[in-house]
Design a protein around this nucleic acid. Sequence first.
DNA 1: GCTATGACCAGCA
DNA 2: GTGCTGGCCATAG
Length: 110
Amino acid sequence: MAKKDNTGFFEKVYDAAREIPYGKVSTYGAIAAKIGSPKAARMVGWAMNGSHAAFPPVPAHRVVNRNGLLTGKNHFEYPEKMEELLEEEGIMVRNNKIIDFKEVLYVFND
DNA sequence: GCTATGACCAGCA
DNA sequence: GTGCTGGCCATAG
């Protein structure tokens, strides 16, 4: 808390995404649940759609779907950019999917 | 104010 | 086990 009123839902998503530490990933549902809307997972994805305009930058490459699949890789500068970033952080990616997903999955603390 | 969309999730055939 | 449909919340037009 101790946070001023953000622009809205979007800023909350950005803030949650920035909470993800290096070498870790998270899911849309987890972020949505953290901000108080476990059903707004879709909105989370859409929020990330404008994450490129957010500052500080949001590590959207650390945000994947429930299956650990790089669903939003298509929205990056180029599709393989997401995989590169993940592998750069020590996260193994195979066929657009994160290996040992549960091991690199970051859990938010309330 | 209503309709359409969105990088999802869960249930059902 | 795989594929698809519905629902869910919030923003933009």
